[in-house]
Design a protein around this nucleic acid. Structure first.
Lengths: 247, 247
DNA sequence: CTAAGATTAAAACGAACGTTTGAACGAGTC
DNA sequence: GACTCGTTCAAACGTTCGTTTTAATCTTAG
């Protein structure tokens, strides 16, 4: 019982607890005392190991995004290599980008649905240090996937692709956040996405993530390949291309 | 028991300032002193007029959502009346639901893009009182639109429609939040969605809202009408396009 | 006018915040 | 033993939080 903890034990436990509490309450509403209390470590431990509360949040994300970024780039590498210079199919690109993320929700050692929910909820946080952090973490990956989509959809204006990537990220972000504020899903008797209070018979997180992936992916693909909008007079930029999108 | 102009002035100014500051900083990070300072009213004015900080946030939303809910229901009423009992087209339903909202972004007297951004950012806030508030405010409208979609897409399982409504709400929420944390859009030289610091030549908010609507709507419609996902073995509930979901 | 009530103003409340301090502890080395 | 180094600990730091209190000011009816 009265064993002393290993050096890195405290660090890891703080990260795990902070990940969960930041997800449940948000960054601002989660105090250091709440984190250290739940982690059963001293209040000063956070500042000792991480330097500040901001740095703690960054580290919570860094340890997960490191894996995610590497895996996303590797998935794209594999696809491009097997395509031998040709363009990829949009479905392949989306599978590599979103599928890799959603697979984290099935793996508890990668953060599971806790991290996915945290990510989705944090992507809309307005705090400056959060936004600059994410911008830096994501820059490389986003750029590579943008280029892949440009090549995969050569007939679609690039600005349009960028916008649709933005929309897809939004749908995914909101879906994995899983708050369902409007009770669209949870108000229907389907409790798939509800995160809190697992009664008996509730599906495990890995099942939740898999169901979500299976339903989200066709939606995203349908949105990406939807007919292009009509050009609008009030807009400065004009696009003369006719939509080749298929259904 | 009579009207006081000063009263009206202070109340409205607090609401306007709070709307903007909650949008810029989030609820937790916006202090009463920041609000009352920017509104040039006394610190105690918020508690006097609204009772508490939570009640202030609710009132900020209530005065906008009252119009939005009424307008959304009226738009659906018009469609159903002109359809004379027949089912509506999905595009009509989406136009009524999302178009009504996006039109608020063009009208400064309805809050403009400031309120739209606030709404998008608040829909993912985890605070309990916010979630219960939104659930109550949206319940009626969501239910009516759900039913309209069920009738418009009789061959699609209801659970699937609900999920796609959820995804559409997410894409819209993220798009109107306009944070673009990953710099997907803003990193491309397109500054359409960037909210802060309007230099000369920046498009006005009404233009931003219109461009957004024209691009978001086809995306949502494409996602809604995408091919259904394959049934999954790991999931308990398997449904092809035949079974009519219960309700 | 005055009285009453509604609104604003200034000051203080206790609690909670993130962070810092300096001493104490434990394990390894000489 | 004494020494070091990395870590943990209790306590306090100064600040800011949302809210309350009490008095002053304004508006309006009688």
């Amino acid at each position: 019982m009265s064993e002393h903890r290993a050096n890195h034990d405290t660090r890891e436990r703080i990260l795990d607890v902070a990940e969960r509490l930041f997800m449940e309450n948000g960054y601002e509403a989660t105090s250091m005392r709440l984190i250290t209390g739940a982690a059963e470590v001293n209040l000063a431990a956070v500042n000792y190991h991480f330097g500040s509360k901001e740095a703690l949040l960054r580290e919570v994300f860094r340890r997960r995004l490191e894996w995610l970024n590497r895996e996303r780039l590797a998935a794209l590498d594999r696809l491009e290599q097997q395509a031998a210079g040709g363009p990829l199919k949009p479905s392949q690109i989306l599978e590599a980008f979103f599928g890799t993320l959603l697979r984290m929700g099935e793996d508890e050692s990668l953060g599971g649905m806790t991290f996915l929910r945290l990510l989705g909820r944090t992507l809309t946080e307005p705090a400056e240090f959060i936004r600059t952090f994410f911008a830096g973490e994501y820059e490389q990956v986003i750029d590579r996937y943008k280029l892949a989509l440009f090549r995969a959809l050569p007939d679609v204006p690039r600005a349009e692709i960028v916008w649709r990537l933005h929309f897809m990220l939004g749908a995914m972000s909101y879906a994995i956040a899983g708050t369902d504020v409007l009770q669209v899903v949870t108000g229907c008797g389907l409790r798939d996405l509800a995160g809190e209070g697992s009664a008996e018979g509730e599906p495990g997180d890995n099942v939740v993530a898999r169901r979500l992936a299976r339903r989200l992916m066709p939606f995203l693909l349908g949105g990406l390949r939807a007919p292009l909008p009509q050009p609008d007079d009030t807009s400065g930029q004009t696009q003369h291309r006719t939509p080749p999108a298929k259904r």
